[in-house]
Computed example of a mutant assay.
Amino acid sequence: MMVKLNAEGLIPVITQDAASHEVLTLAYMSKESIQKTLDEKQVWFYSRSRSKLWKKGESSGNEMNVKSIQADCDYDAILVQVEPTGPACHTGHISCFHNKIEDATISSSNEHNSSVIEELYATIQQRKKDMPSDSYTSKLFASGTDKIAQKVIEEAGETALAGVGKNKENTIGEISDLIYHLLVMMSNLDITPTDIWSELKNRSK
């Protein structure tokens, strides 16, 4: 029996470590990505944000070797048991399901949240790994810790001056620049956004 795709031509897919049975990711597949996964025995997803097929691990190297593929009782969801070659989550965690929910606080879909920071951090991590010659981020890493720290100081000063000038648009831009350079410093010191969220949570008690 064929699986049932939704109105967008996609089906939700859960990946699970075949050895530990830990749930790793929740993503989507299209008809084409299902077929490529079956043919290549490597996990292929469909990116809704980029509207294209993508192979798990194509940029990070953290691929998923397929051990089995099963549909649920209604054929509208898929479970793929895999042998991962590295962390499944772009944050560096083994599983994407690492955020503990302790209350019923819900964010609306149009709110900006920590995932934006984590996505930017993941991109910075990839630049550090690949070190492309035309990347500003790579040049920062190559310049060393002192230079990165100097840039953080410069951006902090520019942010403060923009705030004093009471120009909201300029201040938003400077804060964004500061956050970016802070994330570069974090990556350079192997500090993750999760480390920061944990510390901030401790301070809110």
Rank of each mutant, 00 (worst) to 15 (best):
1 M>H: 11
12 P>S: 10
12 P>D: 14
15 T>C: 02
16 Q>E: 15
18 A>P: 01
19 A>R: 12
21 H>R: 13
23 V>L: 14
23 V>D: 07
26 L>I: 06
28 Y>Q: 05
28 Y>C: 08
29 M>W: 04
30 S>A: 07
30 S>C: 06
31 K>D: 09
32 E>N: 13
32 E>L: 08
34 I>T: 04
34 I>M: 13
35 Q>P: 03
38 L>F: 05
40 E>N: 14
40 E>R: 13
41 K>F: 01
46 Y>D: 04
50 R>S: 11
52 K>G: 04
54 W>T: 06
55 K>S: 03
58 E>W: 07
59 S>T: 15
60 S>Y: 01
61 G>Y: 05
61 G>E: 07
61 G>R: 03
62 N>Y: 06
62 N>T: 00
64 M>N: 12
69 I>V: 15
69 I>E: 02
73 C>L: 09
74 D>K: 06
75 Y>F: 13
77 A>V: 06
77 A>E: 09
79 L>W: 07
80 V>M: 09
81 Q>T: 06
82 V>P: 01
82 V>D: 03
83 E>S: 14
84 P>Y: 01
86 G>I: 10
86 G>P: 04
87 P>V: 00
87 P>C: 02
88 A>M: 01
90 H>D: 02
92 G>A: 06
94 I>P: 01
99 N>M: 08
101 I>Y: 02
107 S>F: 13
107 S>P: 00
108 S>W: 04
109 S>P: 08
109 S>L: 10
111 E>F: 09
112 H>N: 08
112 H>V: 11
122 A>R: 03
122 A>W: 03
125 Q>T: 10
125 Q>N: 14
125 Q>W: 01
127 R>W: 04
129 K>I: 02
129 K>W: 02
130 D>Q: 09
130 D>S: 07
130 D>C: 02
131 M>T: 09
132 P>M: 10
134 D>T: 11
137 T>C: 11
138 S>V: 08
145 T>E: 14
146 D>C: 01
153 I>M: 11
153 I>Y: 05
156 A>E: 11
157 G>L: 06
157 G>I: 00
163 G>W: 02
166 K>T: 08
167 N>C: 12
168 K>V: 11
168 K>S: 12
170 N>A: 15
171 T>W: 09
172 I>M: 09
173 G>V: 06
173 G>L: 10
175 I>R: 09
176 S>L: 06
178 L>R: 08
180 Y>S: 09
180 Y>C: 07
182 L>G: 01
183 L>H: 06
183 L>D: 00
185 M>K: 11
185 M>T: 06
187 S>P: 00
189 L>Y: 10
192 T>G: 03
196 I>M: 12
197 W>G: 01
199 E>Q: 11
200 L>A: 10
201 K>T: 12
202 N>R: 13
203 R>W: 08
204 S>V: 12
